[in-house]
Design a protein around this nucleic acid. Sequence first.
DNA 1: CGGTTCTTTGACGAGATTCAATGCCGGTGG
DNA 2: CCACCGGCATTGAATCTCGTCAAAGAACCG
Lengths: 242, 242
Amino acid sequence: MHANPHPLQPLLSKVRRIAPISVADESALLALPHRVEDVSANRYIVREGDIPRECCLLVKGYAARSKLAADGGRQIVSFHIAGDILDLQHLFLERADHSVQSMTEATLVWLQMAAVRSLVAERPAIGTAFWRDALVDASIFREWVLNVGRRDAKTRIAHMLCEFVVRSEAAGLGTVERMRLPFTQEQIGDATGLTAVHVNRMLRELTEEGLIERSPGILRVQDWAGFKRAAAFNAAYLHAAA
Amino acid sequence: MHANPHPLQPLLSKVRRIAPISVADESALLALPHRVEDVSANRYIVREGDIPRECCLLVKGYAARSKLAADGGRQIVSFHIAGDILDLQHLFLERADHSVQSMTEATLVWLQMAAVRSLVAERPAIGTAFWRDALVDASIFREWVLNVGRRDAKTRIAHMLCEFVVRSEAAGLGTVERMRLPFTQEQIGDATGLTAVHVNRMLRELTEEGLIERSPGILRVQDWAGFKRAAAFNAAYLHAAA
DNA sequence: CGGTTCTTTGACGAGATTCAATGCCGGTGG
DNA sequence: CCACCGGCATTGAATCTCGTCAAAGAACCG
């Protein structure tokens, strides 16, 4: 019941979900030098080609990573919710290979890269947790390759929504029965490799089949078992940590 | 000019390309307990759902990671060449979320997981190199999401071939002008989310355009600049380390 | 050499895109 | 308070890319 919870609290919760760490590790984590930034929707947080000097965490709101095709097409490669680590990879990779954008108003925490490097060097349990988080990220990317490569449009969209709902519920942002869904149909299309028009048609079908119900900004899954089936969704790839 | 080079030599070369490590680190790496295994083509190395107890490296030949869709469709999510780390991720993730298969006769080196864990704990430079390698892997997955999500068939296939040629050349397996290409058109389709029939048509077009020349098991890029253009290929995502 | 796998090609069909128009909703200013 | 505006959702019609089915030819292997 803090009036001002520590800004790194969402990160701590996430790390705890990934792997247990000691009290000393927790203190060290919370002692990281950081600065908090509020951003509005649709702002660039990292731009492809940048050489970031700080690491970024998302403590409130929603964000997405995306890449641009030569023809101007956009592909969202992952979405992120409160507590997610947005670009720890720049600890070890110099240049950003993709962009990160806020999808809603969001609160970020920027960490000094050097401080994070020391932290993971001196506190192996934290290093392991971060590494593991990066591996789960990679697993999600693999699932997305499968999703856009081999599933038809309806399954693809349902799968992406399933993942969103499961991860959001794990982060305590709502329930499967009622979840905030802050994506436009165009953004869902960018994440699934489809056009907004076709996303609309497939969402209509999923709705008509009684699997989901939609109202602006809200997704209600009416039939979770059926929806997972329609999505060919198996949460194993999330490694129970996202 | 060893008659019997050390079986971990390809891994050492790879680690050196990722990040410089000390002589002591190199010795520690080569001292890892390991066992060598030769496998024939199309064998499972890791199966989705397994709980691997060893880590696997590819020191000779070619391999691919793949996932299955509910309808039986297969999606290759990455291919691997000599020197690649095939599944270091099981250091920190218990259950395999995808399969790994040999694509040709191949030589594997299996490392005891516990020994690798100690190594990365005690030798941070090696840990960093492995972590960085995992991050480059993830970057490649993101590019593949873009590739199958937003590029048309011809560009998609060309891009996949560009990546293959660049990585193979970096590993010293040939040149852009002449490279072993041990994939069937069906496998190229599985990697790009297309059917073998359509892969064939697009390869014919790329050939007719004078960009590439094909003979069984061999790819010759006739016009590297033009081919990269046709592929919308920009090697930045490889982070000069794959 | 005979069988198997891989490649190649054609005809046809399906799923997704494109183009275009309409409606809806929230915000803003007169 | 309401008219206007811009972004988003929705729908239909035409089109196109890619998939499916089928068959024949080429390369590889024992």
